[in-house]
Amino acid sequence: MGFVENMIKKSRLKSPWIVHFDCGSCNGCDIEVLACLTPMYDVERFGVVNTGNPKHADVLLVTGTVNHRNRHVLKQIYEQMPEPKAVVSIGACNLSGGVFKDSYNILNGAHTVIPVDVFVPGCPPKPEAIIDGVVTALNALAAKMGLGPAPGAALMPGDEDAPKAAAVG
């Protein structure tokens, strides 16, 4: 592996750019994601930059209930992101449908549409948990680049079909 290539990989991990897609959350999770950027939590001091453009992003944060209308949008955004990429699924709704699970328009979680690396449970999770989720996603990203061991794998509680992922929180 060349020196320059290595530098690029290291800098991507040092300063991950995130894109946030709201799949139809109740806003509870959204405002907690936004709160991570504000002076109290200020993730920018760690080099995390929020971008609006999926083509610039390394980590995708998904919140809210995935439904039949927005799953295509979610899939498109995921496909537009360059490799390697990591996905963090945030909030009870996004993990499994949450309180809306019985409703007719709901898919049971983002992991049914795209591969998810980290699950952050909570309704809504606290900003600390979300930051922790992003940090865990960086380990997953490093593993995908061949720069570290794969993070400890865990199933989501109560869901045998869930893909292997690191549980946070």
């Binding site: 139809g24 209930t65 439904n67 209308r69 709901i106």
Partner: peptide, 8 residues
């Protein structure tokens, strides 16, 4: 895009 069918 956010319809969850909540009233049902």
């Amino acid at each position: 895009f956010v319809h969850r069918g909540l009233e049902s």
